[in-house]
Design a binder for these strands. Structure first.
Length: 288
DNA sequence: CCGTTAACCTGAGAGC
DNA sequence: TGCTCTCAGGTTAACG
């Protein structure tokens, strides 16, 4: 489901809700996630206190006060629900896939804090996963191969131009490659290329420096706009606190096949093309 | 090393 | 209704 903006929204609300809270109990109903949940998972979390909740790329990182960590990936369909037993019907805006009614069937992990506050990890497809990381060095090691996030100043024209070099892979796949750039997924890759006026099928080695610059600017714009709008909710998601993702209303190309191009003075029509088994949307007229 | 493919899963929606 | 097929916001092991 979630790309950088959606994960950031989840991080923000989690950070508000569980900072300084101590884990009282962990219940695992299904260990068979994308990677099998380690056997020591429950005991590792128990009695640890949350210092803060951070994020790298599409990963949520629970930072414990003793400098250890729990890394969470939501996969395609994972959601985190916040529940305060003292205030019934209190959900955070951490769901982008499911409706308010959580199908209990897919509640795989519950982390219960003091004062009857808990978070529930729900994931129908089970592509999501948890990892425990014992110290700062190991956390650094976990992400050392990852490319910079678009907001990082290392993600600049020169970096992109030299990384693409003579490589023949198409630019759409580069944007999805987390070792090149971290946090972009299938929706935002299409949106970023539209804003950059670059056709998703263009081979990496054909991009000019000026186009690399455009990718820097547009990826920052698309992702930060999406965060401002609370992320994208493709399914008809609503939650009780009333917050929901709204960026889907701003999509210029994603899921707009056969509709008119939104760029001023462009009379093009949005096309859909399967690139490496994943759908890409683009304007055949203004994306060269 | 590079680029592509299959595999991991469930559920919704389309078409018959 | 019910069956089959396709598709979905991601990652990674394996292959040529």
């Amino acid at each position: 489901m979630p790309e950088l903006p959606e994960v950031e929204i989840v991080r923000q609300s989690l950070n508000k809700k569980i900072t300084q809270k101590k884990v009282k109990k962990v219940i695992v109903r299904n260990r068979n996630l994308r990677f099998k949940l380690p056997l020591e998972f429950e005991s590792f979390l128990k009695d640890k206190k949350i210092e803060k909740v951070t994020r790298f790329s599409k990963y949520i990182i629970l930072n414990f006060t003793n400098q250890s960590y729990c890394v969470i990936h939501l996969g395609m369909s994972g959601t985190i629900h916040f529940i305060n037993e003292n205030k019934k019907n209190c959900f955070t805006n951490t769901s982008f896939y499911s409706s308010v009614q959580m199908p209990k069937k897919h509640n795989h992990v519950e982390i219960i804090f003091v004062k009857d506050i808990k978070i529930i990890f729900n994931d129908p497809r089970r592509f999501g996963f948890f990892e425990i990381i014992k110290n700062k060095q190991l956390l650094k090691k976990r992400f050392y191969r990852f490319g910079p996030e678009p907001f990082d100043k290392k993600f600049n024209k020169k970096y992109i131009y030299s990384y693409l070099g003579c490589k023949k892979k198409n630019i759409k796949n580069f944007l999805l490659d987390q070792f090149f750039v971290s946090g972009i997924g299938n929706i935002y890759a299409s949106e970023i290329l539209f804003l950059s006026k670059i056709n998703p099928s263009r081979k990496g080695n054909t991009l000019k420096e000026k186009e690399c610059k455009k990718i820097v600017i547009s990826s920052r714009k698309v992702l930060s706009d999406a965060i401002k709008k609370g992320g994208s909710s493709i399914r008809d998601f609503k939650n009780i606190s009333g917050n929901r993702g709204n960026f889907q209303k701003n999509f210029k190309v994603y899921q707009r096949e056969n509709l008119n191009c939104k760029r001023t003075n462009c009379r093009g029509v949005i096309k859909k093309k399967i690139i490496s088994k994943r759908s890409s949307f683009f304007c055949n007229t203004c994306q060269k």
